[in-house]
Simulated scan of single mutants.
Amino acid sequence: MSWEGIQNVVQLYSALLAIPLNLLLIFLIVCRSPKEIGTYKYLMIYISVFEIIYAIIDVVVSPFAHSYGSTFLVIVNMKKTKLSSWIIRILLSAYCGFYGSSMAVFGLHFVFRYFVATGSKLLKTFNSWMIIIWFSIPVLIGFTWSILTYWPCAKREATDRYIKNNILETFNLNLDQIEYISPYFYEIGENGTLTIYWPSFVGIGVNFCIINTSIFIIVYFGYKCYKILNSILPESRKSEKNRRLQNQLYIALVTQTLIPVILMHIPVSTLYFCSFFSLNLGSASGIAPLTIALYPVLDPLPTMFIIGQYRHSLYRGLCWIKTVFFRQKQHNTDDIEMSERNRSDL
């Protein structure tokens, strides 16, 4: 199987796992959340819906990555899709937008956790129609990322000329058989002159500022929450129970945030870095789509297993399935024994 094929298989099976896992988590949030979670459950559902949509786009687009010289490409093999080129271009831009807004989604969660820890008056905005404004922030960031990724990084003549032979040699694909997004930083002209393509620098630079701002918000408010949670002394059994829940929510959120940092942003940042310095990664760049595909599969797991109420519900559900399975198995065994006994009596 080709490297491209391996990436596509991982994307398919990751989506098939990510969708039911996130739906299960939504069920736990809606039906098994303790009352103390309050409005935060809407933010938790928001993440799960985000990851379901991301997984669907990932498997529909099925992009694969390739690094070559002063650029890297996010490629879609048009021979493997029945969708038209303009739809694939839109979905590919949306795919990049979801990547760009992933940290903003978690940044929003840390801001909320800080408001809870400090008892801020702004917490009331999450209990009213203004929660729509909060939810729209990652959407706007994702839209900005999509535009700034597509506009300076879309297919164009200079990039086509630079990558044409390499794509044909590496993947046996002509340029009319692919759609791609590619930040081409240093253009080589027809006479061999080297020119900086500033739109790529500006677009990618703004996108990096957006990502780093989201990461700063996560680190800043995450550290503030950590200090506050460790300074609170429980005054009663009820407050101890609430403190334990808040700690579980905080640990689950930190773990959830580390997953996209490790699986998404470190691999993609490596691609940007290598392209900026014209370092050719070749097929090793395919690791990025593989790890990105794993993100929506792994991300719901910390919430399921760290928060006690959800963990106990899953355990009871597994015990019920086990009981039903063995009861059915025992019933079938009894029927066989009864049948054999009847035959022997005859």
Rank of each mutant, 00 (worst) to 15 (best):
L168Y: 10
I196Q: 02
Y114P: 06
I47Y: 01
C319L: 15
A288R: 13
I29W: 00
K35A: 15
I228H: 04
R161S: 12
V49E: 00
T149N: 11
S2D: 15
R316C: 11
I204C: 10
M130Y: 12
I131D: 08
K80V: 14
S102L: 15
S146H: 05
K241A: 12
G189C: 12
G282V: 12
Q177W: 02
S70K: 09
F106S: 04
V105Q: 03
F171Q: 12
I133T: 13
I217W: 00
F50N: 03
S2G: 14
L281G: 02
Y272Q: 08
L175Y: 07
I292V: 08
Y99W: 15
G5D: 15
Y184M: 10
S214T: 10
I181A: 12
V76P: 03
V324S: 12
P267K: 11
A154R: 14
Y223V: 01
V324R: 15
L290G: 06
V268K: 11
F221C: 02
P199S: 10
G119Y: 01
T39A: 15
K238A: 15
L281M: 14
W145G: 08
F276I: 14
I53M: 02
T71S: 14
C209R: 14
K227L: 10
F201G: 11
I141A: 05
E240F: 06
I137C: 03
S275L: 07
I29A: 01
R113H: 07
V297I: 05
L25C: 00
F201K: 11
L16N: 01
R113W: 03
D299V: 00
F171A: 13
C274V: 12
A293N: 11
L281K: 09
L253I: 05
L253H: 04
S231G: 05
S62L: 06
S48F: 00
K124Y: 13
A288L: 10
N77W: 01
I287V: 09
